[in-house]
Simulated assay, not measured.
Amino acid sequence: MHKAGAYDVPVPKLPEIARNPLAFIAARWTPNPVTVRRAALAALAMSVVIVITGGAVRLTASGLGCPTWPTCSGDSLLGTREMGIHHAIEISNRMLTYVLCAAVGWAIIAIRAMEPRRTGLYRLAWAQFWVVVGNAVWGGLTVLTKLNPYVVSLHFLLSAALITVAVLTWQRVGEGDASPRPLVGKAVRQLGQVMGAATVVLIVVGTLVTGAGPHPGDSSAAHKVQRIHVDWRTIAQLHADFAWVVVGLSVALWFVLRAVDAPAGPQRRSTELFLVLMGQGVIGYVQYFTHLPAALVDLHMFGACLVWIATLRVLLSFRERPSAEPGRVPAAASAEGVGVREAGVRDAAGGAGRQPVDAARVPLADQGGDPLSVRR
């Protein structure tokens, strides 16, 4: 048995900030709801920015500006100025990944420090971080495979996954933690789901247009970048066909929401989606008939991000999540608060209180109402 001796020295205890920095911050700082929502929005904005700059890397033929990964060249992490403009563009995009990590990290810290603590939202914020890490590793794989078009396509789809998680986080910040409550009927939700699925197919086919198009990502004579062996115009036509399918579904949804007198939130979101689709369609046709100029292609990628965000917002507007605590309204809810009016939330004498739910909000199964809407 070991006996304490004169030479025994107690192991120093790590400071609290080193053991659990997030808990340390949360114990000393409680952000206001606006700060948390802005942090989540910043993470979403950076998720879109990284797509635009990644597109610029390919469209300027800078995809192999750093020929290796995780270093840039040999043992050098950043490379040298002598490597030229393509290197500068590629390394700048790599450095922006750290800015994206900082934005996501800020969202994680702000959400962890919220009162009361929201475990589900906190996990969703961390999911953003891990998607960023996974996509960064996949981005390295695009370099190691010398810009294989299928690997590049999946790189963009992982960026779309990041945007999805970021939108969900931003939305959930302004909601409560109760179970979702539908604002529209089952048939309307199913129509929205079909439109969402069609939008996913539209985005996937769009990545194939990129893989077959005239912008391989590297123009050096030392290496010929592999392309998808199909006429890009054929794939572009298929992409346009799916675009019209999505537009048609969005118009149908717009009319149905008004026909069933849906809440203002879903109607407004469907209008926004239609306008974004129209703008994206104009850009798409102009770039096609002008033979895919780099600037318009990158703008079209930005438009694809907006289309997906607008689609997600439509789907999320079909339900509300009030606070699980009776009488408490989520403090971070935005001014437009999807479903707030319909839930009977009012602000009187400076205090928010939840009024009894109207009978029209009782589930359809209990009232035998209109299968398209939960409202009368």
Rank of each mutant, 00 (worst) to 15 (best):
Ile228Gln: 03
Val245Ile: 15
Val247Thr: 12
Arg227Asp: 03
Ala252Lys: 11
Leu253Asn: 13
Val245Asp: 05
Trp232Gly: 00
Asp241Ile: 14
Val260Arg: 13
Gly248Asp: 08
Arg268Lys: 11
His239Ala: 11
Arg227Ile: 02
Lys224Phe: 04
Gln267Met: 13
Phe242Leu: 15
His229Phe: 03
Val256Pro: 10
Ile228Trp: 03
Arg233Pro: 01
Trp254Pro: 00
Phe255Trp: 12
Ile235Ser: 03
Thr234Ile: 08
Leu238Pro: 05
Val225Glu: 02
Trp254Ile: 02
Asp231Ala: 03
Arg233Gln: 03
Arg269Cys: 01
Ile235Arg: 00
Trp232His: 10
Pro263Asn: 15
Val230Ala: 04
Ala262His: 10
Val251Tyr: 06
Lys224Leu: 05
Pro263Gln: 15
Arg269Asp: 01
Gln226Cys: 00
Ala252Leu: 15
Ala262Leu: 12
Ser250Gly: 12
Gln267Pro: 06
Gln226Ala: 10
Trp244Thr: 11
Ala236Lys: 02
Leu238Val: 13
Ala236Leu: 05
Arg233Ile: 00
Asp231Glu: 11
Gln237Glu: 10
Ser270Gly: 04
Gly265Val: 12
Gly248Ala: 14
Ala262Thr: 13
Ala259Tyr: 06
Leu253Ala: 14
Gly248Ile: 07
Lys224Pro: 04
Ser270Glu: 04
Arg227Lys: 12
Val260Cys: 12
His239Asp: 09
Gly265Cys: 14
Trp244Glu: 09
Ala262Pro: 07
Thr234Asp: 00
Trp244Val: 12
Val230Gln: 02
Arg227Gly: 03
Phe255Ala: 10
Val251Asn: 08
Phe242Asn: 15
Phe242Ala: 15
Ala264His: 04
Leu249Asn: 04
Ser250Phe: 02
Val230Trp: 03
Leu257Val: 13
Ala243Trp: 09
Ala240Met: 12
Arg268Asp: 00
Asp231Leu: 02
Ile235Pro: 01
His239Trp: 09
His229Lys: 05
Ala252Pro: 07
Ala264Cys: 08
Val247Trp: 05
Ala236Asn: 10
Arg227Gln: 09
Arg268Met: 00
Ala236Thr: 10
Asp241Ser: 12
